[in-house]
Design a binder for these strands. Structure first.
Length: 733
DNA sequence: TGGTGAAAAGTTTTT
DNA sequence: CTTTTCACCA
């Protein structure tokens, strides 16, 4: 039994073909090159003692600014201090899980400013607005005293630091420099769904006829994904399709044509999908010398967070800005935590940093402030199974080892859920509910957990699920707003017009064509020939005209909602429940002064309102167990972490079993999950799991790969099968 | 245009 | 097995 649990001989591993081998070889060389440029607190010390002959203080401590109110050397560990005070050239910082990455970026920003960098020359790029705001906020409070006391610094406006997501930064550039770039600043943003709709429309426009095709033509979702992946990973559509979708290879010319049309369509109508926002800036940086120069002159100190998750256009953006030698660049990331390749992230970026910047330095943050040594041992053991990467080993300065991760096999997913619920109830006396998290490979895997928690009155919040702005009624209202803001937004027009009964694809197209050719006047809505005399469409005209005259964003929204509500009543029987969301929308609108602002923020920083709360709804931050996917847990930590569904086929996911790189990403995903835990880590696996996708009954290979003595196997697990009924209440209650 | 039924697809999702 | 998407027809 134990023998089979910790042996990998029962698993089949994907073969490494020639291409991958070559690629890995190349990556290894690049890694080795940069490893040679590793700088450590010690190496810096020695070097400076030889050349300058400092006496007692370490060289690092001497770099600390004399006048500063901030105690850099006191508050950072030596490696962090080295990273914070290395402000010239190009640097890659490998920041292991829980190594104080955000803190380091904060202190480096502060150090830059105290060293004389102007706030508006600093550019900080992240993937979430939350991270961007946190760093900026922490810099502000860190420098508050210095700003007040130090004459050289007084009067500096720290708000001038550009700190944001890739998308918000590029969006800002496109609007601010629209004149220089020759584009319309009043563009609207297509989210993924909008972009699918656009492609669908273009298919029809182009006369793509799906019937009578020998080989099925890809659906709109697939098309969108193909085009997006092709752009984000810089793989020609042809190659992408031949490799990953060989079945549709005969349609390659048509798909290429569609991609071209889609691009033209967006440019003509001032529409930008998420990929455009970045790629178009890259395009302008490449082709518009004046723009490039301006940007390079503006941003002299660039920092990038989560570099392992950047895609190719994002890398290009960084490279264009940082090309001049006098622009400093620090990218921070952890190659062990690249888990977004499926979204177009290119994990090679971080491994090839030494290739892009041969002079670059490497700094490693390996001291972990999160987990106990016992958990770190496990996490390090997992790390060793990851094939490619920079050498690293996390260590803790904690004296007590703590408890080893516990692995428990239960008969099925329901028993897993019971086990987890039992453990939480047992541990509750020493913990708040906030201290617990349950992480799963897919959101679906938490269903049983939620049921168990409900039965036992364990409060929980679920992270993820349907997003607020993806709900139908919210998208409808936003489409109305988009029409007002950018009447060229044909996608929004279509969405609204086809809501009317009797209006379909054909009529909608006629109307939008008429509107576009009449210079975006709403008049065609009144044309009886086009509208077949539908009263509702006339009302739409009136409501749009009325909304245009409203003063505030909230008033505009209210006008549109009043118009839409009767339609919603016809469309959805839970309209009452749904209309609650409009209050949220109005409240959001109140925080924005203009439509630009409102639409932009909603698209690029969607409210995380998808959270389902169980427990006390009055409290702002309820004390509740977090239930989350592993992906959404990245960057977070909890004292007690449960990871469930650890059978091969679920974790790793069965669809990733056959490709080396995909399996590798799954392995990193498990690494991310386990490295969230501070003091207790519980791993659970069902004896078997079966679904349409197959029958899975082996424990995850990621567990089997690791030395047996790093985990504790909960032995009375499998005996306690689901036999005794826990009460005599009927199950259907 | 909109209803019907057959046929695919079916993870993860910071924007 | 369940949900979404598409083609067909009245």
């Amino acid at each position: 039994m134990t023998d089979s649990l910790f042996s990998t001989r029962y698993y089949s591993y994907p073969k490494l073909d020639e291409d991958i081998r070559d690629k890995m070889q190349h990556l290894r060389q690049s890694i080795a090159k940069l490893e040679a440029n590793l700088i450590t607190p010690d190496s810096v010390d020695k070097a400076s003692k030889q050349t300058e002959g400092h006496k007692d203080n370490s060289a690092l401590e001497n770099t600390v600014l004399a006048e500063s109110e901030v105690d850099y050397a006191g508050e950072l560990n030596p490696s962090q201090l080295l990273a914070a005070t290395t402000i010239e050239g190009k640097v890659l910082v490998i920041a292991g899980a829980g190594s104080g990455k955000t803190k380091t970026l904060t202190y480096r920003t502060s150090y830059l400013i105290e060293s004389g960098a102007s706030p508006n020359s600093i550019l900080l790029l992240t993937f979430t607005r939350k991270a961007a705001n946190e760093i900026k906020g922490r810099v502000k409070s860190l420098l508050a005293e210095s700003l007040a006391d130090n004459r050289a610094l007084s009067g500096l406006d720290l708000n001038a630091i550009t700190s944001g997501t890739f998308h918000s930064f590029c969006n800002m550039l496109l609007r601010r420099y629209s004149g220089l770039l020759g584009i319309n600043p009043k563009f609207t943003i297509l989210d993924t769904g909008d972009s699918e709709d656009a492609l669908d429309m273009i298919c029809k426009d182009q006369g793509v006829v799906r019937k009578n095709m020998k080989q099925a033509f890809p659906r709109k979702k697939t098309l969108q994904k193909l085009i997006s992946t092709s752009r984000n990973r810089h793989i020609l559509l042809r190659d992408l399709i031949e490799n990953d979708y060989p079945d549709i290879a005969i349609h390659i010319p048509v798909i290429e044509q569609l991609a071209m049309e889609y691009h033209r369509y967006k440019r003509a109508n001032h529409l930008y999908d998420f990929d455009d926002i970045i790629s178009q800036v890259v395009y302008h940086l490449k082709n518009n010398l004046q723009f490039r120069k301006l940007i390079q002159d503006t941003y002299r100190h660039v920092m990038v967070d989560e570099y392992q998750d950047t895609n190719i256009p994002q890398k290009q953006l960084i490279d264009y800005i940082c090309k001049p030698d006098n622009v400093s660049l620090m990218v921070v990331g952890d190659d062990n935590q690249s888990i977004y390749a499926f979204r177009g992230a290119n994990y090679e970026n971080i491994l090839l940093f030494g290739d892009s910047y041969p002079e670059a330095k490497l700094i490693k943050l390996e001291q972990n402030y999160r987990s106990t040594p016992a958990i770190l041992d496990y996490v390090n053991a997992l790390s060793e199974q990851i094939t490619l990467g920079y050498q690293k080993k996390l260590y803790s300065s904690l004296a007590v080892d703590g408890s080893k991760p516990v692995l428990s096999r239960r008969s099925n997913d329901k028993e897993e859920a019971k086990y987890i619920a039992d453990k939480i109830i047992n541990l509750k006396p020493e913990h708040d509910y906030n201290d617990f998290a349950v992480l799963s490979r897919t959101s679906f895997q938490s269903n049983e957990i939620q049921l168990q928690f409900m039965q036992r009155n364990i409060p929980f919040i679920v992270v993820g699920g349907i997003k607020f702005i993806e709900k139908r009624h919210i998208k409808d209202i936003l489409a109305l707003v988009k029409i007002l803001y950018n009447p060229n937004d044909t996608i929004a027009w279509h969405r609204i017009l086809t809501l009317f009964s009797g209006v379909g694809e054909v009529t909608a197209t006629k109307i939008t064509n008429a509107i576009t050719s009449r210079n975006n006047s709403f008049e065609p809505l009144l044309d009886p020939k086009l509208t077949k005399n539908k009263e509702h469409i006339k009302e739409l005209y009136q409501v749009l005209t009325k909304a245009e005259q409203q003063e505030t964003v909230a008033d505009i929204l209210q006008t549109l909602i009043d118009f839409y509500l009767p339609m919603l009543k016809m469309l959805e029987d839970n309209w009452r429940e749904r209309s609650e969301d409009f209050r949220v929308l109005i409240n959001l609108a109140r925080e924005h002064s203009s439509l630009d602002n409102f639409l932009e923020n909603l698209a690029l920083d969607p409210p995380n309102d998808s959270v389902a709360v169980m427990g006390d709804p009055e409290k702002k931050e309820p004390d509740a167990v977090t239930i989350s996917t592993i992906h959404s847990a990245k960057g977070l930590e909890w004292p007690v972490v449960f990871v469930n569904s650890l059978v091969d086929g679920l974790t790793p996911h069965h669809r990733s079993l056959h490709e080396f790189e995909e399996l590798e990403e799954e392995r990193k995903l498990f690494y991310v999950a386990c490295s969230r835990a501070k003091t207790h880590l519980y791993l659970t696996a069902p004896d078997y799991y079966s679904s349409f996708a197959g029958y899975f009954d082996k424990v995850s290979r990621f567990i089997a790969e690791v030395p047996e003595d790093t985990v504790l196997v909960d032995s009375h697990a499998s005996k306690a099968r689901a036999e005794k009924p826990e009460s005599n209440e009927p199950e259907w209650w």
